[in-house]
Design a protein around this nucleic acid. Structure first.
Lengths: 115, 115
DNA sequence: CTTTCATATGAATAATTGTTCATATGTTTC
DNA sequence: GAAACATATGAACAATTATTCATATGAAAG
């Protein structure tokens, strides 16, 4: 039988201190939620098509060889995450990137994967 | 009945041109795969704990109130994605962030969510 | 070499999620 | 107002995945 012993690098008190340094659960949840949106091939592809020009739903679907329905579903998720915005033009909805974070986040991701 | 008509913003030929500008499928898949790793609350939390100091598995588990098994499973995914690295110290495995992309990607993500 | 401690891993389960199909909403044209 | 077109949306199904439980590996201590 062992007596009390502590092989940990951190002292037991340190754990408590580190725990307090963590951001609130809600913030970390929102953060992971954002990345989850980027974490799907279809959505990444959609975002990429919008890098160059704004496009309507049908164009995106054709470009990616996907159904209109599937693209529309995914656009909704991208809208909710404020990654794309849209305007109406007659019967069509024209989608475009919402802000420059999209570009920079994807660029950073590429830097990592390309290593 | 309508005659042939084209309401699209893009000309039919443009679609083909845009299609060629898209990166290869594999690159986009790897990219979404990377973000999928960030897209889980547990893994984001683990990464965050490693922002301040390197830690062993048990410390991380205590810090986050999770089981050792669950943390270990997630660490494996983070290892595979080259987001964390580790060294052995006796019986313990000491984990730390693998490169600075982790910090910058998370920082960018926070910028977006905090808006 | 047996026990203990720290971590890893495999299988099973539960929950989440992307796509499809059918249909609804909304706009334009006649 | 009816028909045609563009997009959105709800339900169902299939696939992916995070956690748990049990157990395996591997190191240190006696």
């Amino acid at each position: 039988m062992e007596l009390e012993k502590n092989n940990y690098i951190t002292e037991p008190g340190d754990i408590e201190k580190l725990k307090q340094d963590l951001p609130e659960d809600e913030i970390l949840y929102d953060l992971s939620e954002l990345f989850r949106v980027f974490g799907d091939t279809t959505r990444i592809k959609i975002l990429y098509t919008l890098f160059e020009s704004e496009l309507c739903v049908n164009d995106i679907a054709q470009l990616l060889g996907m159904t209109q329905s599937s693209v529309s579903h995914q656009l909704r998720i991208l809208k909710t995450a404020k990654l794309v915005k849209f305007k109406r033009d007659g019967k069509q909805m024209i989608y475009s990137l919402d802000d420059d974070h999209v570009r920079s986040i994807i660029a950073l991701g590429l830097e990592h994967t390309e290593e």
